[in-house]
Structures are given as structure tokens and as C-alpha cells.
């Protein structure tokens, strides 16, 4: 339940990033900036869904306060910093830097997503049990 919903959101963010990257590779700078902004907003919204609702609910159910969710929060900070660097590179027309930082961001983001999809979300699904459906509705209702 949680796994499917959040995995779909990961894929949707990935799609936005590839569109921005493809546009910049085609020298469509303005389109790339718009698409990157969508990716930036969507990714930060995804992190917010986890940090404000999902992780807190999991921690309450399991009592695991300093475990995997804490590591995920730390990685969100690293990824947010990379997103800011990419945004600056794009605004300052440093396109090589955008692609270079983007490569690091993409590997880190995908490793992060793998850990969530393979380990953390299934654990959250188990911990929430029948309340997982309600959680998905809460997440869907969060303002981007």
C-alpha cells in the first residue's frame, strides 16, 4: 500500500528530472528551468510527506526513533543541498556543473530510493497494518 504509492511518487519525480535533463541536453534552457522547478518542488514535497507524516507514524508504532528513518532524514538534507546546487548551476548557466552535480544527485537519490523501496516502505507497511490505507489518503491530501 505505502510501498506502491511512494514508489509511484519516486518514479514520477525521476520522470520530471529526466525531462529537465533531456531539455537542457537539447539546449532548451527555459524549458529545462521550468521542468527542473517541477522536479525540485515534487521531490521536496515527497521528502515532506515522509518527514511530516510517514516517518513519524512509523516511529510511533515501532518505537524506533534513531534508526533507518533518522538516516533517511539525514540523506534528505544531503539531497536538498544537491538540489539547491543544481538550481544555482542552472540559474547561472553553468550547464556542465548542472550535469555533473546531477549525476551525483541521481546516484544518491536512486540509492536512497532503493533503500526505501526495498527495506523501509515494506517495514512501514507491516508496522501500520490496516492503517496504511488511511496514511495514503493523508499523504494524498497534503498540499504540495
Amino acid at each position: 500500500m505505502i510501498l506502491e504509492f511512494m514508489r509511484e511518487d519516486h518514479r514520477s519525480c525521476d520522470h520530471l528530472f529526466t525531462e529537465a535533463e533531456n531539455a537542457l541536453a537539447d539546449k532548451k534552457t527555459e524549458e529545462a528551468a521550468t521542468l527542473f522547478e517541477s522536479f525540485y518542488q515534487a521531490t521536496n514535497h515527497h521528502f515532506d510527506m515522509e518527514e511530516r507524516e510517514l516517518f513519524i507514524a512509523f516511529e510511533k508504532r515501532t518505537g524506533m526513533m534513531g534508526g533507518p528513518t533518522q538516516m533517511m532524514r539525514y540523506e534528505h538534507q544531503q539531497l536538498r543541498s544537491l538540489l539547491e546546487s543544481m538550481k544555482s548551476a542552472l540559474n547561472e548557466n553553468r550547464h556542465d556543473d548542472f550535469f555533473g552535480i546531477g549525476e551525483s544527485m541521481m546516484i544518491m537519490l536512486q540509492q536512497h530510493n532503493m533503500k526505501e523501496e526495498q527495506m523501509l516502505y515494506p517495514m512501514i507497511d507491516r508496522a501500520l497494518g490496516g492503517d496504511a490505507e488511511l496514511m495514503v489518503q493523508t499523504l494524498k491530501g497534503m498540499e504540495p
Partner: peptide, 10 residues
């Protein structure tokens, strides 16, 4: 079930 779980990056 979660014993030893760590999500260190590298």
C-alpha cells in the same frame, strides 16, 4: 525484525 538494520549510504 529490525535488529541490525542500518541504512548507511556507503
Amino acid at each position: 525484525m529490525y535488529n541490525g538494520l542500518s541504512l548507511d549510504q556507503a
